[in-house]
């Protein structure tokens, strides 16, 4: 199972619509980094609207992906984290301190645009 990564101008869009298991998450991490390298993208929006559960491993992978992407010069915004997921993450002590977030895809893109100066 691979998560599709869409290119939109200078940005990459990912909408996670499957249950994230460890293997899928790691595969995704690799795919995304390759894609960033290939396209020279400046921003990435990962939309988690349809994800109802994140365990600590997935949370760690997401945190890592964000850090790796920014090393490669792409800003990442996480969007659409559901309240239940947010509460679980906080309960696990994962606050994704360094990660940018936005309410939905639209606001996520706006945010990227602001940060990258239009």
């Amino acid at each position: 199972m691979r998560i599709p990564i869409l290119k939109l101008g200078r940005y990459l869009l990912i909408s996670v619509q499957v249950e994230l298991d460890d293997q899928t998450a790691l595969q995704f991490q690799e795919d995304l980094l390759n894609k960033i390298h290939q396209e020279g993208s400046l921003g990435v929006v990962i939309d988690l609207t349809s994800v109802d559960m994140i365990d600590s491993f997935i949370a760690k992978v997401i945190g890592d992906v964000v850090e790796m992407s920014s090393l490669m010069g792409a800003k990442v915004v996480l969007t659409g984290i559901q309240p239940a997921v947010a509460i679980t993450l906080i309960d696990m002590g994962v606050s994704l301190q360094e990660v940018q977030t936005a309410l939905d895809l639209e606001q996520g893109l706006e945010r990227l645009q602001q940060e990258l100066g239009g």
Partner: peptide
Amino acid sequence: IRASEAVRLVGA
């Protein structure tokens, strides 16, 4: 503090 971290995660 917990509430505000969760708020940040959902994007506000």
